[in-house]
Structures are given as C-alpha cells and as structure tokens.
C-alpha cells in the first residue's frame, strides 16, 4: 500500500503559523526605496530580522584614538581589506573587502578594533561612506 507520511505533517502545517520571518515586510513592496522612505517617515514598520547572537561578527568598528599605527592588523588580514595611511599613521578599512573574520581584532595590541552586530550593509557603491571605516 502506498504510504505518504508527509500528508499529516502538511495538513498540520496548513493550520499553524508559517515559519518564515517576514523581514523586512510580509510581501515585497511595490517599491523597495518607497517602502524604506515610508519606514523612515513612520508610515510603515519594518519587521525585524532574526536577532544576532551575542558574539556575532558584523561590521567592524575602529577606535581611531586608541590606534597606534603598528600595522599588525595589516599583517593578518586575509582579505587585504586594511590600508595603512602613512600621513596620519592610521588605518582605513574597506568593508566591501572585509570577510568579517575578526582576526585583526585578535591581534591589535591596543584593542582598537571591534566587531559590531551590524550586518545590513548592502549598498550600490563600494566606496560609499558606510563602506569605509577610518
């Protein structure tokens, strides 16, 4: 006899809440930029993304004051995402290049680098202000 063990499971799911997290909104808005503008003006709300865990490795934060320009971070960065600026003796990090390994955080003697939980980083311009940390 043919067995279809999936059927009861499917019928159960038909009457339970969908598992999808409706981020950023339930259905694709007609215009994404329009939707974001509405969110900014408070007319619409964004459904939040799944929360990140405590030690998540997101966009890098750089403490310019603490840095001493030792360039150790350049030595371990696998993605060559860090550039040393000789004039200011400080570094510049290109987020589009960074692979979020946090190896630079580990090596920095002055604890000047940290990872933030920020992960919504997509833009259309690699050199946008949000994509460069210095």
């Amino acid at each position: 006899m043919a067995r279809l063990p999936m059927v009861p499971e499917l019928l159960k799911q038909l009457f339970s809440r969908p598992a999808t997290n409706a981020f950023p909104s339930r259905h694709l808005p007609p215009s994404v930029t329009g939707f974001l503008a509405k969110v900014a003006s408070g007319e619409a709300t964004i459904h939040p993304p799944v929360p990140t865990p405590p030690k998540f490795r997101g966009k890098i934060v750089y403490d310019r004051e603490a840095c001493i320009g030792c360039t150790l971070c350049l030595k371990v960065c696998p993605a060559h995402a860090i550039e040393f600026i000789p004039e200011t003796k400080r570094i510049r990090i290109y987020i589009t290049q960074c692979i979020f390994c946090s190896q630079c955080n580990d090596i920095c003697p002055k604890d000047a680098l940290h990872m933030s939980p920020d992960f919504l980083l997509a833009t259309e311009n690699r050199y946008a202000e949000s994509q460069i940390v210095e």
Binding site: T52, P53, P54, K55, F56, R57, F100, S102, Q103, M115
Partner: peptide, 25 residues
Amino acid sequence: YLAWRVREESMDLIENLTGNRVNYG
C-alpha cells in the same frame, strides 16, 4: 522546506558558538 527549516537549529547553534553562520572563522 522541512529539512532546511530544521537545519536552522544547527545553523543558529553554530552562529552562536562561532560568530558566523557560514564562514565560521
């Protein structure tokens, strides 16, 4: 869909332990 949904539990666990979902570092 079912298999990938239950897979999320291990992905979340890995993310919690390592800091990333896919490239754990």
